[in-house]
Design a protein around this nucleic acid. Sequence first.
DNA 1: GAGCCCTTTTAAGACTGAATTAAGGTTCTC
DNA 2: GAGAACCTTAATTCAGTCTTAAAAGGGCTC
Lengths: 227, 227
Amino acid sequence: MRLLLIEDEAALAEQLRKALSDAGFATDVTGDGIEAQYLGEEEAYDVAVLDLGLPGRAGLEVLRNWRKAGNALPVLILTARDAWHEKVDGFKAGADDYLGKPFHTEELIARLNALIHRAGNQPGGVLTAGGLTLDEDRQEALLPTGTGMELTGTEFRLLRYLMLHPDSLLSKSRLTEHVYEYDQDRDSNVIEVYINRLRRKIGHDAIETRRGQGYVFHPGVFRSQDG
Amino acid sequence: MRLLLIEDEAALAEQLRKALSDAGFATDVTGDGIEAQYLGEEEAYDVAVLDLGLPGRAGLEVLRNWRKAGNALPVLILTARDAWHEKVDGFKAGADDYLGKPFHTEELIARLNALIHRAGNQPGGVLTAGGLTLDEDRQEALLPTGTGMELTGTEFRLLRYLMLHPDSLLSKSRLTEHVYEYDQDRDSNVIEVYINRLRRKIGHDAIETRRGQGYVFHPGVFRSQDG
DNA sequence: GAGCCCTTTTAAGACTGAATTAAGGTTCTC
DNA sequence: GAGAACCTTAATTCAGTCTTAAAAGGGCTC
């Protein structure tokens, strides 16, 4: 996986580069908007991380220009946690995801993996979200504690969909659609039953219920349990 | 948001109705052209979904008749993916958008949101009004201070309607019509109760009471609080 | 093809919290 | 100041969800 990191603060840039390399990303770093723009157009990256703390709002311009040119490169933006307007502006400019600073590196990596998977650029085999690992070849989950859990087919498909959409509200009908291709199910509580089974295996708190709306998968839960 | 779904295939109709309800649309369903025509004229819908698979080409007739009567209700038509002529006929009859079957429900919902949103409010699933942000995917509000507020289903539907009609006088009956499905409207103070709950979450001043007339949502209130 | 094991689906009762109702208090209008 | 409209809180209701268990289904071996 090739990753473009656009970050002007040298210390943070280096820290992130290390962590991202450890996670298996071949990372190019630039702190300059013009260079970032050029690299994003000329090189074949799988994903980009864009810190909006760049001086002069250059960051969003880079992103807008990419989109204007039809470049669909998945982009995750970093913003100060309280700068809500940056988040909104970022999405308007075409960002795919965002993360507020300060953040845990694991979460950044999990979201990057999710972005890449969503874009269809399948690497192979392993999907991580905040410490939880899903081995797609062996169809089993690996908890941060090291415990391995075998999953049945349906459990696996459901968990994978949850992990691909971390912190997103997923309605039961949407989950049904994606876990069972184009199967139109009548009223049935399969999703509830499988949510229950997953909770037993990976922990109850990882999946939040929003009554009347759906479920939210929280990768962050795993951070606190183990490093 | 009140939605009219015109779909004669019962299974698909039910599947869509569920998914649309999850997404916060108060959905009325009919499989009959005559009834569809009547409902579109008499009820206050924000958008309609029209499946052209209806027997006897009745679907396009419904649409044409609405347009002839000056009804500008946004309409999205569903067609078989390879039925190119249906798409053309549909636009000629006054459709605003179309989607080929089969499709992912998320795409339908995204397009419906786009149809409903006013110009300028277009990014993926995010609705803004003067500093207040409504995340339509997660069904939660983001205050200018950065505080996120989870919303229940009814709170979400009401707030979305308010935000889509800023600075407009909205009567209680109109709010009821757009927040609830085909209603056997008894006198009740639900709207008052939910206005009260919203005020607690987003601030009392955002919603003005016009005694005897209704409510006005003021996005401007949020601008003064934060930059 | 009978029996076994594992997965998936259905079903039913308990539980929870969102939606609704209800009731008393407050503010506005005339 | 009387009546109406609205606010606010609390109780009630009821649909949505949890949980468990058992039935149904599918693939395997012998």
